[in-house]
Each structure stands twice: as C-alpha cells, then as structure tokens.
Computed example of a mutant assay.
Amino acid sequence: MRHREMDLSDKKVVITGASSGIGRELALALARRGALLALAARRAELLDALADEISANGSPRPIVFGVDLAVPGAAAGLGRDTLAALGGVDIAINNAGTNLTGAQSVVADSAAARRVFEVNLWSPLALTSAVLPAMRAANAGVIVNVTSTVQAVPLPLLGYYSASKAALAQATRSLRLELAGTGIRVLEVVPGAADTALRDIDELPWKSAPPKTFPPVAPASTAAAIVRALDRGTRRVVHPRYSLLPLEVPALGRLVAAVGGRRVDTHSALAGPSR
C-alpha cells in the first residue's frame, strides 16, 4: 500500500543521531524543505553548530537536545520533550546507531553489548511509543527506522550490530501491520555502505587487506533518498539499490558473510578485549 504523498513544509520532525553523517544531512535537507526540526545526539556542541548553520540559511533554528540514547529512559524522555517543544511530531526519524566489534564469547552481555541494543533497538521503540499517541490522535504521521543491510549479512565479530539491526527491521515490519488502516506510515530505511564514521568494514581485524567492496555512498545521497521516500509515501527505501540483493535473496547474504568471514582474524579477537 502506498500512502499519500507528503508536503514536508511546516512538518514537525525529530531526528536522532543528527550530529553527523546521514542524520546531519537529513536535517539540512528537511530544513531546506521547510520542516521544523528537533535534533538529538550526544554531542550537543555539534548540534548547536548545525542549528546555527540551518538558521543562517534562512530556516527556523532547530531545537537541540543533547541526549545519550544508551541511557535507559532517555529516548522516552526525548519524545516527551519534543512533543512539548514542537507542539506535536509529524515525523520521527530513528537514525541513531552505534557499533561494537567483538567476539560474543568475550563481550557476552556486558555493558558495552547492552549499549548497542539500547541505542539501536530499545531507543527507537521507546521514542516511537512516546510520539505515537499524538500521531494516533491526528491520524497522521510517519515513523522512520534506519536499519542496515548488515541485518542480512551476519559477519563474524559484528553479531551485536547485525542482530540489533535485524531486530529493529522485524519490529518495523510488525509495527507497520499494527498501524495498518491508520493514517500513520512506517518507513524502513536500509542504508548500504555509507561513507560515515560507523563503517563496520573499518572495524574488523582483517587477516590481510580488507576485501574490495562497492565505493561507499555519501551521506547526502542517502538523505536525499529518504526525503524522496517521504515525498512519495513509500514504505521502504534501500540505498544504494544494489543493497537489495542480500535482503531479497537471504542465501546470498549468508554466502557473502561466509566468504568474507574467512578473511576476518577471529582468533585475535578471541584472545583480546573487544573494542
């Protein structure tokens, strides 16, 4: 089902992970379209600089929330604060993410492991829960969850990141069914290789040189694809398009993980602490 196209001007939008990468580019793109923004991230000083830049370009200055979404309860608080500050939320973009490279036998259920799931899974669910009642009352709105192609490519030493993103992807699909028949749309964004600080290939201990991959996509390109998806009323955007392959053909994702996994130095990870 395709929802009606959306006019983004004056839409009230909250974006997590807005201090850099895709989140930052999304803020700039949506501000140019006339959206009213609330920006959230740990690094409040970067958010302030971004808000100043948006204001200098002639758009309303975004509201800034310096918040660590790894803290339980922080996302729900962000939702309440955003509703109060903006007077509502039309679009909630759960973009924040964090990674952890390490062997499961070493990391186990440590605080670092729980942080990954708090940021990547529980915070999106909590923020969504906080803003949904207002969206239900208006019978309109969009929930945007940013997952990852890695949900379908279970590489060694990235089990926490891939599992948390796979869980968010499944929760996104389930939420879409829960909200079927309402005016609320659920959009899954599946970035492929993006040129951001959160590149898993750079985190892995390779036995020799990392395998050759497609060139990473600029965050601005992914942000533009998300804005187009919001415009058009679609339910899922995969960018770049070739990243659809492991999602639609899971056996291919497992094959890529198996072949690539042979080049990862898992023994050194088992011998030392995780990063």
Score class of each variant (00 low, 15 high):
Phe117Cys: 01
Ala111Asp: 15
Ala56Glu: 14
Val256His: 00
Lys12Cys: 01
Leu230Tyr: 04
Pro72Ser: 11
Lys207Val: 07
Pro211Thr: 10
Ala220Asp: 14
Ala103Thr: 03
Ala171Thr: 13
Ala134Val: 10
Pro191Lys: 00
Ala44Pro: 00
Ala31Asn: 01
Ala126Cys: 05
Ala166Cys: 06
Leu270Val: 03
Gly183Ile: 11
Asp202Asn: 12
Pro60Glu: 13
Pro156Asn: 09
Gly261Pro: 06
Ser59Ala: 15
Ser174Leu: 15
Val64Pro: 08
Leu245Pro: 02
Ala70Tyr: 01
Val256Thr: 11
Val150Glu: 14
Val189Phe: 02
Ala140Met: 02
Leu100Trp: 08
Val146Lys: 03
Val14Thr: 10
Lys11Tyr: 03
Gly34Leu: 07
Arg33Pro: 06
Gly77Cys: 06
Pro215Phe: 05
Arg43Tyr: 08
Pro124Leu: 05
Ala41Arg: 05
Arg199Asn: 15
Met1Gly: 13
Ala130Trp: 07
Ala75Asp: 08
Trp206Phe: 08
Leu198Arg: 02
Ala35Gly: 12
Leu255Glu: 04
Leu86Ser: 02
Leu69Ala: 09
Ser162Asn: 12
Leu100Met: 13
Ala70Cys: 02
Arg42Tyr: 05
Gly192Val: 12
Met1Asn: 09
Glu5Met: 13
Glu53His: 02
Ile54Arg: 02
Ala40Ser: 15
Asp202Glu: 15
Ala41Gln: 06
Leu47Pro: 08
Gly102Val: 12
Ala134Tyr: 06
His267Phe: 02
Ala112Asn: 13
Ala224Ser: 12
Pro240Val: 11
Leu69Pro: 08
Pro124Ala: 07
Gln151Phe: 04
Arg228Trp: 02
Ser123Val: 07
Gly141Ala: 10
Ser148Cys: 09
Val190Ile: 15
Leu187Met: 11
Ala75Met: 09
Arg61Leu: 11
Leu255Phe: 12
Ala269Leu: 10
Pro211Trp: 09
Leu127Ser: 06
Gly21Val: 12
Val217His: 00
